[in-house]
Deep mutational scan, measured.
Amino acid sequence: MTEYKLVVVGAGGVGKSALTIQLIQNHFVDEYDPTIEDSYRKQVVIDGETCLLDILDTAGQEEYSAMRDQYMRTGEGFLCVFAINNTKSFEDIHHYREQIKRVKDSEDVPMVLVGNKCDLPSRTVDTKQAQDLARSYGIPFIETSAKTRQGVDDAFYTLVREIRKHKEKMSKDGKKKKKKSKTKCVIM
């Protein structure tokens, strides 16, 4: 069974824990209790493949930012979460993405942009803004509501699919490099 290491990042209060708990335990946590770091595991079937999701729910508070490099190193894919009623959390996505790329030393890291709290009427981040940002990053965008469960499975499952595509691409690139290195030079 394939294991996928997913990391949920975003500013404090955007609903990272609520999304994760909704996926794992099928219930909505409405009281806000700032996370330092929590880890969850769940076995699911995605596109006919049974897999184990190892999900790291991270601290959004700035005082825990020193811990970010460590979990970013171990993560295979990242859910970059903002709240649709919090423009600052949307603007912060850029910083999370840049930090992930720096730590992973790669421009090509599996990510999904997630606009959470889409059940709320007080939207300050337009869907088109988020779609445009995701398009500019070359990553999928999904709106979710941890409260109603809308888009929750889709967000995590899409990230797994992005990781699969990335692994497939990397193995193809690896095979191309191996083929090239088999060419021999004969000096007579």
Rank of each mutant, 00 (worst) to 15 (best):
C80R: 01
D38Y: 02
C80Q: 02
D47H: 03
L6P: 03
A59H: 01
V29G: 02
M72G: 02
E63L: 00
F156V: 15
I100C: 09
K42S: 04
K178N: 06
H94M: 14
P110D: 02
E62M: 04
D153F: 08
V9F: 13
R97G: 04
S65A: 06
T2M: 12
E98H: 02
S122D: 13
D92R: 11
T50A: 09
Q129I: 04
D47S: 04
C80D: 02
Q43R: 12
D153A: 10
G15R: 01
D30Q: 04
A155F: 15
L133T: 07
Y4D: 02
R102N: 12
T124C: 11
G75M: 06
C118R: 08
T148S: 05
M188Y: 14
S106G: 14
L53G: 09
Y71E: 14
P110M: 03
T50F: 03
T58P: 10
T127W: 06
F90D: 13
E168H: 02
S136A: 12
E37F: 03
K177A: 06
D154M: 06
Y40F: 09
Y157T: 13
L113M: 11
V114N: 00
E168Y: 14
N26S: 10
A59K: 00
V103C: 14
R135Y: 13
M111E: 02
T35S: 14
F28D: 00
H94Q: 07
T2Q: 09
E98R: 10
S106Q: 12
V152I: 09
Q129M: 09
D57K: 00
H95Y: 08
A11P: 08
K101Q: 04
K178T: 12
S136N: 04
F90L: 10
T20N: 05
L19Q: 11
D33N: 01
H166A: 10
S89Y: 11
N116W: 00
K169V: 06
V125Q: 11
Y96F: 15
Q70Y: 15
Y157N: 09
Y64G: 09
A18Q: 01
I55F: 11
K104C: 14
S136C: 07
P140S: 03
R41M: 01
D108K: 14
S145E: 15
V7P: 01
T74N: 10
N26F: 02
F28H: 05
A59I: 11
D30H: 10
Q43I: 06
G138L: 01
A130K: 06
Y40V: 04
R97A: 10
D153P: 08
D30I: 03
D108E: 10
V112E: 00
T58G: 05
K172I: 10
N116K: 00
C51P: 06
E107L: 12
T58D: 13
E143G: 13
I55S: 15
C80W: 01
D132R: 05
I142P: 02
M67A: 05
R41W: 00
L23T: 15
R41F: 00
V8G: 01
E162M: 07
Q131I: 07
F28C: 05
G151F: 11
V14G: 07
T127G: 07
Q25S: 06
Q61K: 01
I24R: 02
Q43K: 12
G77L: 13
R123V: 09
E49G: 07
L23K: 14
S65C: 04
K42T: 04
A59N: 06
V112T: 01
S181L: 12
C80I: 14
E63N: 04
L79R: 00
K104W: 09
Y137M: 10
T2Y: 06
N86M: 01
V7N: 01
K177P: 09
Q129L: 06
F156P: 11
E37A: 03
L23A: 13
S122E: 12
S136Y: 11
D30V: 04
V109Q: 03
I84F: 13
C80F: 15
D30N: 04
N86W: 00
Y4T: 14
N26K: 09
E162W: 12
M72L: 04
G10Q: 01
F141A: 06
T74L: 09
G10T: 06
A130W: 11
G174I: 10
A134D: 03
L79Q: 00
L6S: 03
Y137L: 13
I187T: 06
K178I: 08
G115S: 06
E3T: 04
L113F: 10
D92T: 07
I163G: 09
H27V: 10
